[in-house]
């Protein structure tokens, strides 16, 4: 097998430039982040000790996990309904639905966050409508809190939830649904026993994708949280840029990266991750 082995080496050489580029501009900085988290302000595990002792660190992590969980749940719910509707639509209608889902992806995340601020603020459209209809006497606090963050993040995440779920739903043979009905199953049973289990890989994939994306969200929480509700990414920025506490910031960044890798490792055993990120479909 010597010639084959040589040919293998040849192919590997082709990706060497890309590999070096990645190492230089991606792996090396992350390694440096990891290093700083152990060396600043003094060498040791001091920064990581904060995970267990500092109430503010724990609060940031708690807030982040809570917001991400709620966001993921809502995005999955909305996304599933949308994907279901699209998967069962006729070809022409389906194209329009997909366009409607994808359009938000092409609008800057900054623009969308500010759009939500104008809609949700005290004098915003939503509060005006609620007050004029007499449902509330005082304007509601809809933005610059967790509620605002969740609204903005769910809006951003729904397309990312729809796409993997739609891909997995489109693979379900419609004859299976007809067969189930023909064998005596009412519509809700067909959904619960056939459609839902068969779309489960897509649902899990979408959940992993949305949750991981949510963990590192920066712009949307920063704008819609108004600096009052801090999530991990904004907190890291704050530590490094404003408070110049590099050790603490890089420690949290490391925790974030490890959490994401751990989530991926766990779910790679359950679903085919290459499919989640779009290859091999």
């Amino acid at each position: 097998m010597a010639p084959a082995g040589q040919r293998q080496t040849g192919w590997w050489l082709l990706i060497l430039p890309a590999f070096l580029l990645m190492t230089a501009f991606y792996v090396a900085p992350i390694a440096q982040v990891l290093a700083i988290s152990f060396t600043e302000p003094q060498p040791g595990l001091g920064n990581y000790e904060r995970l267990f002792t500092s109430e503010s660190v724990q609060r940031v992590i708690g807030t982040t996990l809570r917001i991400c969980t709620i966001t993921t749940a809502l995005a999955l719910l909305l996304g599933y309904v949308l994907a279901y509707r699209i998967a069962l639509a006729e070809a022409r209608a389906r194209r329009w639905w997909i366009l409607v889902v994808l359009v938000p992806l092409w609008i800057s995340v900054l623009v969308r966050a500010f759009a939500w601020v104008t809609l949700l603020r005290r004098q915003g459209l939503v509060n005006q409508a609620l007050m004029e209809s007499g449902l509330v006497a005082e304007p509601l606090q809809l933005v610059w809190n967790e509620f605002g963050i969740v609204v903005g993040m769910v809006h951003y995440m729904v397309p990312y939830a729809v796409l993997p779920m739609l891909a997995s739903m489109r693979e379900i043979d419609p004859r299976l649904l007809a067969a189930a009905r023909g064998l005596g199953a009412p519509r809700q049973t067909v959904f619960a026993r056939i459609f839902l289990p068969l779309s489960l890989p897509g649902l899990i994939a979408a959940g992993v994708l949305v949750f991981i994306f949510s963990l590192g969200f920066y712009i949307t929480p920063a704008i819609l949280g108004g600096g009052k509700t801090l999530m991990v990414a904004e907190w890291i920025g704050l530590q490094i840029l404003d408070l110049i506490r590099w050790g603490l910031g890089t420690m949290m960044a490391t925790v974030l990266v490890v959490t994401i890798l751990a989530t991926l490792a766990v779910f790679s055993r359950v679903v085919d991750l290459r499919r989640v990120f779009g290859s091999g479909a």
């Binding site: 067969a179 023909g182 064998l183």
Partner: peptide
């Protein structure tokens, strides 16, 4: 009872 084209067994 119905046997579908391609059988439509639940995978």
């Amino acid at each position: 009872g119905m046997v579908f084209q391609g059988y439509a067994l639940f995978p």
